[in-house]
Design a protein around this nucleic acid. Structure first.
Lengths: 234, 234, 234, 234
DNA sequence: AATGAATGAGACTTCATTCAT
DNA sequence: CATGAATGAAGTCTCATTCAT
């Protein structure tokens, strides 16, 4: 008697592994090129070379497809980071690594998915619910850890919120990439990453590390003066 | 200007002028709230209180309307900056002013228009052509000048391209704002602007200005002291 | 800042009174011919001679259109009944009038809308919410009143629930009409109404009213016997 | 028949036989729950636990499947009735039996199939052709026979067409059931069947059987008494 | 016999845009 | 100038049905 909710054709997780992959690839491209609203199932289907209906046998809806695309993207990056980061020692080196990796991913996949997350993540009618928020959190988790540790051991300034630091770090990278895409110019990842890491690091280190140098100078002078006075009073 | 309750016959031209302004205001809100694709002429018309057809007597198309909205927004900001910036002296102060102003505009108008520019500016089928690129260029022109001057007079590091510096400056601000919007939390503009300006400035100043100058000073003093001690002990 | 629920084009109540009427007429036909699920906006539009989109400027959705069609139908019938019923005296006459009127409406409009109500009214996923239940209630209200009064003043049997009586009354009429439609034969309304009213009335009157006749006969006989005995004993 | 846990090799034919039965059962449920248009092959296949394609190896089309479902349903009922009806004597008892049985079947299987027949039977584009008409005819044949015999031997009124009587009988029952389904209340079959049978019977018996016979008897007695009195008083 | 996979046809719905008044 | 009315084009999604394996 349970009339409600007849099962519409539920796409099982894997009909044809290969086809599924192809669709995800095409979708990633399309979404990243024109955003969620701009993307059409027709276009995605066209690129895969199948009918629209076929895609709906793999994904229940456009939204679902998009969520999967984003999820996969994150998973790839996160997997890579989780493998490599532990091999690196030192706050600054870890920081530089994360900057370089982020820039690399953005460059390889384009900045589209990133834009997607940023712009769709803020829709009031939470089309994507907390999915994006969670992905975002997972993605930035390693960086946040590095920052937190840095703060703890004095490598990183403690006078600003971690959230602000995060913005200060990821913001520039997205900006750089958009710039590049807009101008259709390739980015020299290594160089840009190095520059940005250097520039940002200067902003991240505690002012005291700098003031420390002053302190040193001051004590040097004080010491010299003392010696001088001692010498004079002889 | 006080036509309000008297309803003296307002010249036709003027009435249209007013209508046009109202439409632009409504459109700015709608576009910034839901993006280009999400915005509908219906909604804009509804807010203005006219029919959709009316809007088409003022603007040839949705795209046109959007371009005008963006153009106006830029014009306002640029006008403000061109008025106030000359009154400020010193690279760092100018820089801080521009950061604060940018953050303020984004906060007041929401980050929507900014997102619009960022995300629509990169469509492959150049829906907006080079319009956005040009606007963007005009908008950042003052900051670019400040940076260029800073580089020239040694206030700002010369070892990175201005474009990269620009990204390092505007990127974080957009990021901060999106974060705020996503979490529906208000931003303390003054505090955030101050923090960001401080953080970024540390990255912008020439490395020599920091380490070099101190080192120099220190070795100068040390040298002097030595010479002095040598002279005294003789 | 209220981004959510942007007003999609809301169809105002009356764009072109005439057009609206035409659409409602066409929709009534289509819905009653093929049911809700079977009806398509395309077909309705085709009959009206407009594009599908036009219909959506008058009605927000297929469901809405259907609700309006049903509502109008009920309103027509109810209005007629409320005008005429008060002019009739006597439970039986009122009953007969309601039977005749119901049959007439069904014959004129076909039994389709009736079927619609009956079959859509029972969907578990209340596509029509309580709309149909309420319409149904309003429609049968007059008959229910007549039955209740009849029960009160002894014209109608009190040993069965009013709901059962209602089914016993409306059921046959729908059945008759479906039969007619299926066989594509016209119905002699007056004759059928009279027959059904007569047949049903016999079922509705209290069994006592019939037993009454027996009582009468019995007392007649008893009286006669008495007189007879008196005469004999003389 | 007990192939259950032993899993002895079941002949292919038999396995198919079983499968066919399972499909028909699932289909009956689905069709009766959501109607023809609302039913999907996907849902039916899901309930059977096979792929949709499999169903198409047993039935050429959705329409075909539906026709078979209806046909089977009718066959079951008819078989039951043909077995039991001959064992019952007397028009009234037979009538009551048929009412009770009909109500029972509807209650057990839900009113869905009945609705299906009623609503699909009237499509203009005869999707089901005359199939339904014929099924309906076969189903009501026993009742029609009883009515015809009743008319012949004076148990049932002869002043109304059998078709009308049939509607007067089946209509109320469907109505009662729909009412029950709509209100999700269980029906007390025995009580309802008894009430309806009583009520309807009163409408079915010849008016003469009630009034006429009494009247006749009465006037006979009155006449006899008069003659007797006259004789006595002489 | 069974099915995984695919799809054509079509459903409802949206929206920028046009045009006569 | 303003708009009521209309619509073509397109979008997401559904589903009965086919076919190679």
């Amino acid at each position: 008697m349970n009339t409600s909710s007849l099962s519409r054709r539920v796409p099982v997780q894997a009909r044809s592994e290969q086809r599924l992959k192809t669709i995800l690839e095409a979708a990633r491209l399309v979404f990243s090129e024109v955003g969620y609203a701009g993307a059409t199932m027709t276009e995605i289907a066209r690129r895969v070379g199948v009918s629209e209906a076929t895609i709906f046998t793999y994904f229940a809806s456009k939204r679902d497809l998009c969520v999967r695309v984003l999820g996969n993207w994150y998973d790839e990056i996160i997997a890579q980071v989780e493998n490599e980061l532990p091999l690196i020692a030192g706050t600054r080196s870890k920081f530089a690594y994360l900057v370089r990796t982020h820039l690399y991913r953005l460059t390889v996949d384009g900045t589209g998915l990133c834009a997607l997350i940023l712009s769709e993540g803020r829709e009031k009618d939470d089309k994507f619910g907390d999915v994006i928020v969670e992905l975002q959190r997972r993605y930035t988790a390693p960086m946040m850890s590095v920052l937190a540790e840095g703060v703890a051991n004095g490598d990183i300034r403690a006078d600003m919120s971690l959230g602000l630091l995060r913005s200060a770090i990821y913001g520039p990278m997205e900006h750089v990439l958009w710039d590049a895409v807009r101008k259709e110019r390739a980015v020299d990842i290594e160089a840009t990453a190095a520059s940005l890491a250097e520039l940002l690091w200067q902003g991240l280190v505690p002012p005291d590390a700098r003031r420390g140098a002053l302190q040193q100078l001051r004590s040097d002078i004080v010491g010299a003066v003392r010696r001088f006075e001692a010498a004079v009073s002889k």
